[in-house]
Write a protein that binds this DNA or RNA. Sequence first.
DNA 1: AAGCCGGGGCG
DNA 2: CGCCCAGGCTT
Length: 362
Amino acid sequence: MNWQSDLNAIKSAFPVTLERWYEHHKRDLPWRHTRDPYRIWLSEIILQQTRVAQGKPYYERFIEAYPTVADMARADERELLRLWQGLGYYSRARNLHQTARYVTDHLAEKFPDSFRDLLKMKGIGEYTAAAIASFAFGERVPVVDGNVYRVLARVYGIEEDITTTKAKKTFAALAGELIQSADDPATYNQAIMEFGAIQCTPLSPDCLLCPLQQQCVAYQTGRQHRLPVKAKKAPVRNRYFNYLVFQSKERVAMHERTARDIWQNLHEFYLLETDEPKGQLRDLPIPEPISELVESGTLMALPTESMQLLSHQRIHATFYIIDLPDDLTGRLPADFQWYSVLQAGRLPKPVLITNYLEKAFG
DNA sequence: AAGCCGGGGCG
DNA sequence: CGCCCAGGCTT
């Protein structure tokens, strides 16, 4: 038996193993006692990005308030939103109402009964369409939610970053292949999600009592805690660069950046960085020797503002032109030099500075 | 492809 | 405090 047929054997055994596990471990949840697409739809919308424990009481209240889709369609939107209060992602509630009205008014209270038609409803995406189609109508379409990413990434040792579009395709294709071997697509879909929720959990998966321990690539290679791979988005930091553009007789003072920071070895004006925007020169924390220069100089025109986006930073720049009397031009820090506009134009500079020079002196 | 939308529970 | 949760819509 080569590895290819070996892998296929695992693939066909996997769904049935999960289905059997599910029959023994499934939680008793209210939406598991019905095949009414309305109730299943409601439960799926509530459970989007929401834990079962948090959503369950809401589900009970909604079913009591609106036993049928027509009841929900007739409801006042403010009342529906009030019932939703505290669940978050409030657009879910608005979409819920819209779809209830659509099903009632245009589909004679009969829910779409296929994955394709369900997808057309407001608030129903790939995951929810697959969930309703399989749970209510037995369609053989795979759900791919956070649990499925985690379980498949671990069992098959998939290292792709699950936040990318490419990875979504990889997982959807694998899930679509796997569900072909399921005894019952609805049970299998429930099973893989339940398995992810209570056995193959994000932080401390119960690998020691896991029925897939032998075939799980992650466990066999000790990587279960590092899968799935999920890139964290780098937070964009706001920085405020207040430039004092000292000028004297058609020349400007510049220096080279040397710090371990952006724009290393590029030239810029005298910089005061603050962690919040400062609208005026007098609000800036100007150190002693420089403040004397500013006092003696002349502020020319209004400050110019511009912004530059970097990968993980947003630079907000404000430029103040300060004209210095001749006798003070030697008082800047030692690394500053005076350049004609032409000379300054030839220095290596950040785009932000180049643009400013062009606009102010070009 | 990336940003936005939320509240709660967990280690 | 950061991560994650039965995702989907908009830009």
